[in-house]
Design a protein around this nucleic acid. Sequence first.
DNA 1: GTCTATACCTCGATAGAC
DNA 2: GTCTATCGAGGTATAGAC
Lengths: 203, 203
Amino acid sequence: MPHPQDLETRDRILAAAHAVFLKHGTAGARMQEIADEAGVNKALLHYYFGSKALLADAVFLRAAGELFPRLFGILQSDAPVEQKVRQLVPTYIDFLRPRPYLPVYVMHELHAHPARLSGVFAEQGPAPLDVLRRQIADAVAAGEMRPIAPEQFVVNLVSMIVFPFMARPALQALLRVDPEQWDAFLDERRRTVADFFLAALRP
Amino acid sequence: MPHPQDLETRDRILAAAHAVFLKHGTAGARMQEIADEAGVNKALLHYYFGSKALLADAVFLRAAGELFPRLFGILQSDAPVEQKVRQLVPTYIDFLRPRPYLPVYVMHELHAHPARLSGVFAEQGPAPLDVLRRQIADAVAAGEMRPIAPEQFVVNLVSMIVFPFMARPALQALLRVDPEQWDAFLDERRRTVADFFLAALRP
DNA sequence: GTCTATACCTCGATAGAC
DNA sequence: GTCTATCGAGGTATAGAC
């Protein structure tokens, strides 16, 4: 973009767009609502981002960029398996708690717009499961762990962490949990999910 | 609606709307695309359903109605816990496999449109966790199970079943799994998730 | 850089023939 | 019941003043 830009205004617009897109999805979002939320007028959105589609791209990359890397940062480390699990569960729950719309937004956009995938995982490094695969193999050989494929390991763990946020409205109704009990419910998951997961790995 | 109706045409439209709404979400769906998919013209959609919003309501109720009841049908039965788990995992995975968009669609609509909740869970009966709560208490007292709150039990189990479908595009990229390997990955989950879950409950 | 005013167009909805 | 043709609201995008 050849335009001169006020970065502070640009950030305000991007933050407002983030909030509105996450709440309504790209198709359901209105440029007017973003402008209102940012305290500017519609024309400025086009001045800074060119079009709704380009603004949506920027927001999606931002959202996916906070969702995925902090998962794989922890999983790829060389720390022992148990320590990684015990660290990931509370860390990620604390991250998602103030961002309840983030996972559904990202997954919905990926379904409706699969081309977005290339943008997100382009700079992705080598297969991220190698460290974990060796750690599991060693623990199994030492008789300390039941065998499990590393893919299943990761998906089981991430499922239990992320799914409750995606299903929150349904779970609140099905479990008869009002919004304040929901916080206690998440606290309990924060405390118990790692234990539950590690218990499943006992030989 | 006081209109006379051709039920076969109405069903074709509803099925087409189901497909299009699930793929793009309510806001992203176009009445023209639904008409094309059903092999009729736009005007007929209004003849049968009145408006896009009403058609969207019908589709959402239909989708939520296949997603939730078959979960709680199994969980509320009087069968032993282990049997319920071993039945639910393959049954539900087989159900979702040909409907990969269903969970994300429902959860996204519930986030963007929380009022829909009332429509879905209105006819819901009494608290559905009572059977499970007693079964867990008995098993724990008999020394056969680690203690766990029934809410956490259900959410852990359902998370591992449903989440992979919601996150499929991301998981395929992150795990380096191409679409045909994805089927094998789901087969493995179908075989292993119940064992994994039950292993976590061992005392 | 930021605003107001407006052009342009997509899309949901309706009218009316058959 | 189903179609063609068209209207009008609402939304993105642009022009141009400041």
